[in-house]
């Protein structure tokens, strides 16, 4: 993903030493994951916010998932300030949409909006790795995964952020049930998905130093969004 960031190429420690020592991004890291089910969607993120360089923890509790006005949930990791700005812009657009059309935007439409918003900053991207979770027009759970400049696709299970590469293969195995003989699809219950999510994060926290402190689960159903909070390692 970092290859999309032209500024990273021009702002190296070498150029920093020669005068231009301003770097507009900080990596606040953290992990976000989403799993979609038949009539639900579970989004999860840790709540640790760390400082890009060095080994500093800014805070142990700074939620990085946001419930949007249309009932879907947007999870962000990477540069927290860019994540916040993105959320602000998206929420503003959702409000305009509501006033113009007298209804809430659907999650698939929001997924498209998010993509074009990210691409509008193609050459100075939001340094945010985002995941969108919600219910589609038929009421099925959906998770949309993105890169930082707007490429996106719907998926069954997705993990991103600093611990994303640790969690994704586990989700491939447990949710996609990929085997050499093909995909053995089996419907998952909400409880199964929640267990997989919690265990993914406790394991990722063991090996990724930027993930930890608390886990927040956002459970999206037709009834609304439930939030649950669990402990993670704090070291």
């Amino acid at each position: 993903m970092d290859s999309f960031l032209p500024v990273q190429v021009s702002w190296t420690p070498q150029t920093a030493a020669s005068g231009s020592d301003f770097y507009p991004y900080t990596n606040n890291a953290g992990t976000v994951a989403g799993i979609s089910g038949g009539d639900f969607c579970v989004m999860a993120a840790d709540t640790r916010q760390s400082f890009g360089v060095g080994y500093l923890i800014n805070t142990r509790y700074q939620p990085k998932m946001f419930k949007l006005s249309n009932g879907s949930v947007l999870g962000t990791s990477g540069f927290y300030a860019d994540g916040l700005t993105l959320i602000k812009r998206i929420n503003q657009r959702l409000e305009w949409y509501k006033h113009a059309h007298d209804k809430e935007m659907s999650t698939p439409a929001l997924a498209q909006l998010l993509s074009i918003t990210l691409y509008s900053k193609r050459f100075f991207p939001y340094y945010a790795r985002v995941l969108l979770g919600g219910l589609d027009l038929e009421g099925h759970g959906v998770v949309y995964g993105y890169d930082s400049i707007g490429s996106y696709e719907p998926c069954l299970a997705r993990a991103t952020g600093s611990g994303g590469s640790l969690i994704q293969p586990f989700l491939d195995n447990q949710i996609y049930r990929k085997t050499p003989l093909g995909i053995l699809q089996a419907p998952h219950t909400l409880d199964q998905v929640k267990a997989v999510m919690r265990d993914s994060f406790t394991s990722a926290t063991e090996r990724d130093i930027q993930t930890g402190d608390y886990l927040e689960l956002f459970i999206i159903t037709a009834q609304g969004v439930d939030v649950e909070k669990y402990d993670l390692r704090k070291d």
Partner: peptide
Amino acid sequence: IFNDMGSGS
């Protein structure tokens, strides 16, 4: 261990 991410366990 708790305040430095480079230290732990």
